[in-house]
Each structure stands twice: as C-alpha cells, then as structure tokens.
Design a protein around this nucleic acid. Structure first.
Length: 653
DNA sequence: ATTGAGAGCGCG
DNA sequence: AAAGCGCGCTCTCAAT
C-alpha cells in the first residue's frame, strides 16, 4: 500500500493507493503540523510513503524521532525509469522531459550551509512545511555527472612566480562551505523546483499523484517489472538510509582529530602562516633546489621551473612520477605534498566546518553517480583519509560494526555473466580462503594473487597495457563468460549504444560532442588528427560502458545490502539490557543500532556494545539476502570482512 | 571580486 | 607499480 504525500497549499494531502495504483478511500488533508501523527499512526500498516523527494520530507520526521520503514522517492524513480532500457517503450520514457527531470536534490538540513542559503519554496503559494532552515539545492551534479568530458591536451601556460601563502587566511574566514555561498541564495517563490539551469519549468507543476500513476504504468509496461520494482525500492530505501545517516551523524572525536593534526603538522598555525612541519619542509625543498626563499612550493609552475633549473628531471609533480626520480628534493617534496594535502583537505578548517557536537553529518547524494553509486557533497565524506579515521570513535558503551564486501566487483561480474567457474573461484570450500583472487590463482589461470587482481581490474576497467593486458588472455581462457560480458559491454559503448545493469539502470548515451567528433573523422579532409581523436574517444566510451555494468550492478548489490541492514537493525529493537545506555545519537536511534557510514562496498553500524555480535550476524545475513535478490539461486558468494571495534581506523583488515 | 580550467590527491 | 573506471575537493593562475 502506498500513501502519496503532497503539498496542498499550507496543508498536506495524503492519498492511499493500492500497489496497482487504484485510489483507496478518500483523500485526506492534514495540517502540516499533523503529519507526524499521521505517519506514526500509519506506520504499523506497512505503507510505502510516496513523495517527491525523501530529503524534502524525511528529515523533519526524523527530527521528531520518527522513522519510516518504506518509501518511494518519485524523483529518484523518475530518473531511473526515464533512461532505463527496460522502460524505454513506455509513455513515461517516450514523453518529453518534465519538471521531474529537472528536479534537483534537496540537501539535508542542518549542514554548515544552512545559514547561508534560503531554500526557495518548492511548492507555489504554500508556506514552508517545517521551519527547519532547509536550504536550496546547490547546483546539483545532475547535469555534470555525465562522463561527457573531452580532455584537451593544452598544457602549462606562462609561468609567474611568487604567489602568497594562503594558509589560515582562509581558515579564519567565515567560510560557509566550499562553493556554496554564491548566487544560489535565490528567493524565488514561483519556481516549482530548484533547477540546475535556472530555466523555468514549461511543463507544469509537480503532481505526485499523476507522476506516481505514470511510474506505476511505466513499471508495468516495462520489459522486466520485477527488476525495476526491486531497483526502485532499493533506491528509495537508500534515500531513507542516507537521510538517517545524516540525522544520526558519524561519531567524530574532534580532540583526537586535533591530536592527529598536531602530531603530523605541529600546532595549529596562526593565520597567514604555514604549520611548522610544512614550513620546515618548504625550507628543505628550497635548499635542495638551491632556490630563493620566495619559492612557493604550492605553485606548480613555480616549483616545476625551480626543479628544471636544478636538473631534477621531473615532467610533472605527480607522486608516482616523482617517486621514480633520484634527487635530494624528492623526499621532502613528497612529504610536503602529503602533509599539505592533510592540512588543506582534512585539517583544522575541515574540523571547524564539518564536525560539530561530536558528529560529522555527511550529505550523501543518492544516485549521484551515473552508475548508481552514491556521491556526497560537503566535507568529502567518501574520501575520508585512512589516517584521520582514528577520530571516528564510538560513544561510551557503544561500538562499531564495520563490514566490507570482499572483491565485490569481480564477484558481481561472475554472477552477472553466470560464469560458474569464476563464481566457484570466489567460493570458500571447507573453510578455505574466501579471497577470490587467491581462488583464481588456485584454478591455475594465473600464477599470483597480484596478477589475478590487476588482471581482473584491467578487465573491468579496460586496461590495455602492462601486466594487466598480459594476463587478460589467460583470464579470458579460464573465464570466457565473464570476460566476454565486459568485452561486449565495451563494444556496445564504442558503437554508441546503451548498456544496462542487472536491475535495469542504463548508461547515458554519449553527448552531442561525441557524435560531432565521430562525424568529423569521416570527413573527406579528416586529418589523422581528427581520426585519432575519434578513435580515442570511442575507446574511452567503451571503457565507460564496460565498467558501467559492473560498477552499476555492484552499486545495486550494495543498495540491497543496506536496505536489508536497516530493516534488520530496526527489527532488533531497543537495547534495554542491564547497564545499557543511550548513545549521543538523537531519537529514534539513541537506543538502537543504526547505520552511520556507507562507502560503496563498506558500511559502519554504530551499536550498543551488547548488540555488536547480533548486529554482525544481521549484516552478514543482509549480504546473503542481497546476493539472492540480485542473482537468485546462482551460486555466488559475497563474503564480508566484519570487525567489531571502537575505532573505525582499527577495522581495516 | 568571481569564475573556470588544470593539476593533483583522497576514496572505492 | 602506473595503465584502465567512478567520484569530491583544494589549490593556483588566468580570464572576466
């Protein structure tokens, strides 16, 4: 049963509909303040809350301590149905773009950007539903997330020396968050949606009821309703999980983070100065290069020129290129770059901006990646360096259950291609290793774990050189079905065709510039230049589609995994054992194990210590469930490495 | 002052 | 170890 939620002036409309889309009972209008009560009352009957955007509704419910079990996120579902090859011949897909296509994600409330922006009212003529200080979407990545890029070979321009140390000049300033305090503070009250382009919606307002009906129809008319239903349910469950993780926050010990920084960099520097360790290294660099004190190691042109003058022989400043060189400047330079990165990306400024009240509240962007993986915005939640994860410490009396799926992508490929031999290589026999790469070695296909790994990565990414390419023929002989699947995906992409994941997410078509470049290669006067550019572009798109099917299906597995985890965790109930104490997470999670972090193939659950073991079992069971949901009875294993630990940094293993 | 590109590195 | 997939973020520098 679905309950479609829609804004109705200052009120909220609630409409029950069967799973087939038939209205049930009478429409129901409640005041905005009454929604929480309605949700609580209806939750026991397993409704699927159907709304335009989970981030527009759910945070307010969570703030009231209310969790919902199921949802249907119309915005996310629309995006899938719009481009899926399975629903290509449906009215929804064949119709022109609607306002739903331009709907940008609403970011969760309460982030460091909250004070800076005013959220445009997404429902004309209505008052804000809850006064939470919700904000407008930043220009979302919806339009830019496509791999439609051309890399021009343009190189270094003219070089100017000097440059001033940025340092704490910025750290001290009132930064509201990277790139988000700009012109987005629109106060428009007429737009029905926040769009990336700012273009007005020509196709009318957002009507959740008609959209929902259209989506049900599209699913039903699709070539595989079952898969799409699962995909949309998982995607929506992901949206719920993402909102819950933002609500709960990742436990973050600012004092430990500060210790890490001070240890590595020296004490926090005064504005306008480098941390002591960086300053010392900068001087070492200057000395090694016989360069003047004005040499600014943060300026690439400056530094490259000084290195050339000193005869270092560096073509770029990339770490792995520098590592090949033999010169006294290399060691201090590499260390400088490493510490500089820590300081700028995850230093005190980051701490001030993103970690408050013992929590880092990340903003996930569900479906933010073309392949279906999540993206994040603000704080670099998906790029937390390993060396700062020591700051992630569970609350007193609580612990973390950290789990990651071992070799998820090759296992997904094995199942996707129904390659029984490859799947068998990943299955543990009699307690033997669950390491799939070791299993591949055991088949005799390749002679070392490293070869198995780079070979598989090359097969899934489209590697054409080095060890990866050398090993590929052997893998192709041992696992013809798996390799054939990725090769076919690559060929399809090279032809400009669309490829599709297990549950039905399809790749975007190449952009207009793609066709233009291809066309120009066929011109009479097409030079070798144009032809090679077209060829390079073709291969590049082939690598994208090759990887899309694997990465996208792995993302679906992960989505099913967390959907199952969050349901199972809730079913465990509250920790009421003797000595149990509430954590610092807000209701409804203060006495319950809950997800706090998700990273493509890895999850962190924050749990009362007494429940750690049962949580670990549920996480394991959820992985098995995810495998069955995607691949049925096909005999593929998705083993996890699970750790129970009070510090995230101790989990890796 | 603001914006965009390029370079580089963090994560999977 | 350096080729290949997907991202976000920060810096500098040149252009606006």
């Amino acid at each position: 049963m679905h309950t479609v939620v829609s804004q109705d002036g200052a009120d909220i409309g609630l409409r029950s509909m069967s799973d087939a889309g038939a209205p049930e009972g009478e429409p129901h209008i409640v005041e905005a303040s009454g929604l929480v009560r309605e949700v609580i009352a209806a939750e026991s009957s397993h409704v699927r809350w159907t709304w335009d955007d989970t981030n527009g509704w759910y945070p307010a419910l969570l703030a009231e301590g209310v969790r919902v079990d199921r949802a249907h996120d119309l915005r996310l579902a629309h995006a899938v149905l719009r481009t899926s090859a399975l629903s290509a011949r449906t009215a929804l897909a064949e119709a022109g773009p609607t306002a739903w296509d331009r709907l940008a994600a609403v970011p969760p409330p309460g982030g460091p950007t909250a004070a800076a922006l005013v959220r445009p009212d997404r429902h004309p003529g209505s008052e804000p539903l809850f006064d939470l200080g919700e904000l407008s979407a930043p220009a979302s990545r919806a339009a830019s997330g496509r791999p439609d890029r051309e890399t021009s070979g343009a190189s270094a321009k003219d070089v100017t020396g000097g440059g001033s140390w940025n340092g704490e000049a910025r750290d001290g300033a009132a930064r509201m968050g990277p790139g988000r305090d700009g012109p987005l503070a629109s106060t428009s009250t007429t737009s029905t949606s926040t769009t990336s382009t700012g273009a007005p919606d020509a196709t009318g307002p957002l009507n959740p009821l008609t959209e929902f009906t259209a989506q049900l129809r599209a699913i039903k008319d699709s070539t595989d309703p079952g898969r799409l239903r699962l995909l949309l349910a998982a995607e929506s469950a992901g949206a719920l999980a993402a909102a819950e993780m933002h609500h709960a926050g990742l436990p973050w010990r600012g004092d430990i983070h500060d210790e890490i920084l001070t240890e590595a960099l020296g004490p926090r520097p005064r504005p306008g100065t480098r941390p002591a360790k960086l300053e010392a290294l900068a001087n070492q660099i200057r000395t090694a290069l016989d360069a003047p004190p004005t040499l600014n190691p943060d300026s690439h042109p400056d530094l490259l020129r000084a290195m050339e003058y000193a005869g270092v022989g560096a073509r770029s400043l990339r770490k792995w290129e520098l590592e090949k060189l033999d010169h006294p400047v290399i060691a201090p330079l590499l260390e400088y770059k490493s510490l500089y990165r820590l300081y700028t990306a995850n230093g005190w400024n980051w701490l001030d901006t993103w970690a408050h009240d013992g929590r880092f509240r990340m903003e996930y962007v569900v479906g933010g990646v073309v392949t279906g993986r999540w993206a994040s915005t603000g704080g670099g939640a998906l790029q937390l360096p390993h060396n700062v994860r020591r700051a992630v410490v569970s609350d007193p009396g609580w612990t973390f259950v950290v789990a990651d799926a071992a070799q998820l992508e090759p296992r997904v490929l094995a199942a996707l291609s129904r390659d029984e031999r490859m799947a068998a290589a990943g299955r543990s026999k009699d307690g033997a290793s669950t390491d799939m790469y070791a299993g591949i070695v055991a088949t005799g296909a390749v002679d070392s774990r490293e070869h198995a790994k780079v070979g598989m990565l090359g097969a899934m990414y489209g590697g054409t050189t080095g060890v990866s390419a050398q090993v590929l023929p052997r893998l192709a002989r041992a696992f013809p079905q798996a390799i054939d699947l990725v090769e076919r995906a690559a060929r399809a992409g090279e032809r400009g065709e669309v490829v599709t994941t297990r549950l039905g997410r399809s790749s975007p078509r190449p952009g207009e510039s793609w066709a233009a470049v291809q066309g120009s290669a066929f011109d009479e006067d097409a030079g070798a230049d144009a032809q090679s550019r077209a060829r390079s572009q073709t291969r590049s798109w082939g690598r994208f589609t090759r990887n899309f099917v694997v990465q996208g299906t792995a993302a679906e597995w992960a989505l099913c995994w967390i959907a199952s985890i969050r349901r199972r965790l809730w079913a465990l109930g509250e920790d009421l054992s003797d000595g149990a104490r509430p954590g610092l997470a807000p209701a409804p999670f203060d006495r319950r194990p809950h997800l706090v972090f998700f990273l493509h193939d890895e999850i962190v659950v924050h749990a009362p210590a007494a429940l750690a073991d049962v949580v670990a079992q549920e996480v394991q069971a959820a992985a098995e469930e995810a495998g069955r949901l995607l691949f049925g009875d096909f005999p593929v294993d998705f083993p996890l490495s699970v750790a129970v630990t009070e510090s995230y940094a101790d989990a890796k293993g």
